[in-house]
Simulated scan of single mutants.
Amino acid sequence: MQLKLLLISCIASALVIACSETVSLEGRWVEPIPGMENKIQGIELAKGGQASSINMATLQYEKWDQQGNKLILSGKSIGNGQSGDFTDILTIEKVTDNELVLKKGNLNITYHRQQ
């Protein structure tokens, strides 16, 4: 009986993996700027791990990498005449062709793919 349940579980897992479609993170991902909903900000994830900021002068993304359900963004933070390197590790909560939900601590950020 236990062997039968294990076999059914393995088959179900294999079907889920085989049927799931991998969605590319590459592209332009934007969200409304809080308090200025008619303007957008976000990130562009390009081929080869290159990244850039969209309408964020003080946060300049340079590189990105995906490791499992983690999105690793790095670049330079610029403010008050000083700049410093940073690396953010965000959890990918959801990704579809048109939506990317990232989590950092208690903060959820929902981006939409810009065409």
Rank of each mutant, 00 (worst) to 15 (best):
S24A: 14
I72D: 02
S83A: 10
G27I: 12
E31C: 03
R28T: 05
M56S: 08
S13G: 09
C19K: 13
V16L: 12
I8N: 08
T110Q: 14
L5P: 04
Q41P: 01
Q114W: 05
K70E: 12
N98H: 08
V95L: 13
L102N: 09
N69D: 10
I78V: 15
Q50D: 10
E62A: 10
G42K: 03
K76W: 12
I109P: 07
A51I: 08
S53V: 07
E44W: 09
G35R: 15
A18N: 11
M1W: 09
G48L: 05
G68E: 08
L71E: 13
V16I: 15
S13C: 11
T91P: 04
K47P: 03
W29E: 11
S52K: 15
D65N: 12
S83V: 02
E62F: 09
N80H: 13
S52G: 08
T91Y: 04
T96S: 06
K94P: 11
D97M: 00
Y111R: 07
G42E: 14
I8G: 12
N108M: 03
D88L: 12
I89L: 05
N98Q: 14
G81D: 05
P34D: 00
Q41H: 10
S53L: 12
I92V: 11
E26H: 06
T58W: 05
V23Q: 00
T87W: 00
W29L: 13
G75C: 09
T22S: 12
I17W: 05
P34C: 00
T58R: 03
Q50H: 04
L100V: 10
Y61H: 08
L15P: 04
S74Q: 07
S9F: 03
Q67K: 05
I11W: 00
I78M: 12
N98A: 09
I11H: 02
Q114I: 14
H112E: 08
